[in-house]
Every structure is written in C-alpha cells, then in structure tokens.
Computed example of a mutant assay.
Amino acid sequence: MGVEIERKFLLRDERWKTLGQGVLIRQGYLSSHGDRIVRVRIVGQEAILTIKGRSQGAARDEWEYSIPLADAEVFLDTLCEKPIIEKYRYRVPHDGMTWEIDEFLGDNAGLVVAEIELEAEDQLFSKPDWIGEDVTHDSRYVNANLLRHPYSKW
C-alpha cells in the first residue's frame, strides 16, 4: 500500500503552457464514494486501476495496478459513472520536483489545476511564480466530485 500526499493549486496565468507537452487522460469512476474511490484511467496506451481511501488532510492511502487497455476501455464505456473526466496533463519540472497540471475538457473546460506530490505533509517546496491559490482542502477540486458538480455549473 502506498500513501498519496499531494497539494493542489490554481494557476495565476498560462506561462506554464510553454514548459511541457500535454498528454490526454480519460478517466472514470467505478466508485466515487467519499470513503473510497475506484478509478480507471487511460493515459496514451497505458491503463491503470487506482483505489484510494478517505483523505486525511493532504494524504490518503492509494493502490495502483496496470490493467489491459481493452479492459479499461470497456470499463470507461460501460461500467464507469458518467460523464467520463477528460483532461490534458502537463508535467513541469521545477526546483527538483515535478508539477502536474491538469487542463480539463468537456463540462469542466476552463478549469486548470496544478498538483505536487510530496513525501510528507510538512515537506517544504518552492512554488513557480505561476502557481496561485492553494485549494488542497476544497473538495470542489477533487476529480471524483467534478462528475456531479462540474466546473461549468459553479
């Protein structure tokens, strides 16, 4: 079992777009219950099943498994809650760490969020000057919540 510790931020502007190439991600949820999330994700030709426990601050238990691409496509098309979340992810290095920036599509178009994974909740890290407000504890920005409450309806 792993533990995911991440912080989530809004962005001040689009300067980050010149720093990396985006990859399309399609993801759906077999379960988006608050106590557990079961997610299927396709990134390029790779498919991943992820199980996450309840968040405790910026941390939560997490398990990830590679699954056959064909299975993931069936899950997304027939079993996952709708709508499917689609976004472009950009990986941007900064000061020895990697920021993941998600630019959402569909009903969540216009939403752009940056995340950084940490080794500990109190780990110090530097923020690029294009990083804005910390929204780590704002549940509206949790991908599973964007199913029921898309950004376009805020």
Rank of each mutant, 00 (worst) to 15 (best):
M1D: 10
G2L: 01
G2M: 02
E4P: 02
I5F: 05
E6L: 05
K8M: 05
K8R: 15
L10M: 05
L10A: 03
R12G: 00
R12V: 14
R12L: 06
E14L: 10
E14G: 10
R15P: 03
T18I: 07
L19E: 00
G20M: 01
G20C: 04
G20V: 07
G20K: 07
Q21Y: 08
G22I: 11
I25H: 10
R26V: 07
R26I: 04
R26D: 00
Q27N: 02
Q27G: 02
G28V: 05
G28W: 04
Y29Q: 05
S32I: 01
V40I: 14
R41P: 00
I42S: 04
V43K: 14
V43L: 12
V43N: 11
Q45S: 14
E46G: 07
E46P: 02
A47W: 00
A47Q: 00
I48G: 05
L49A: 02
I51C: 12
I51F: 11
G53M: 02
G53C: 04
G53R: 01
R54K: 15
R54N: 09
R54A: 15
S55L: 15
S55V: 10
Q56I: 12
Q56H: 13
G57W: 02
A59P: 00
D61N: 12
D61V: 04
D61R: 11
E62D: 06
W63A: 12
W63M: 08
E64Y: 05
Y65A: 01
S66C: 08
S66D: 15
S66M: 08
I67G: 07
I67Y: 06
P68S: 11
A70T: 14
D71H: 06
D71V: 10
A72P: 10
E73C: 03
E73A: 06
V74H: 09
V74C: 06
F75M: 14
F75C: 09
L76Y: 00
D77V: 03
D77A: 15
D77M: 11
T78I: 08
L79N: 08
L79W: 11
P83L: 05
I84N: 05
I84K: 04
E86R: 15
E86K: 15
E86Q: 15
E86T: 15
K87F: 10
Y88Q: 11
Y88D: 08
Y88K: 12
R89F: 07
R89L: 02
R91S: 13
V92A: 02
P93A: 08
P93K: 06
H94L: 01
H94Q: 02
H94F: 11
G96S: 00
M97D: 09
M97K: 15
T98L: 12
T98K: 11
W99Y: 13
W99H: 07
W99I: 08
E103Y: 03
F104K: 01
F104A: 04
G106W: 14
G106F: 14
G106C: 12
D107T: 09
D107A: 15
N108D: 11
G110E: 08
L111M: 14
L111W: 10
V112W: 09
V112S: 10
V113G: 01
V113K: 02
I116N: 03
E119I: 09
A120S: 13
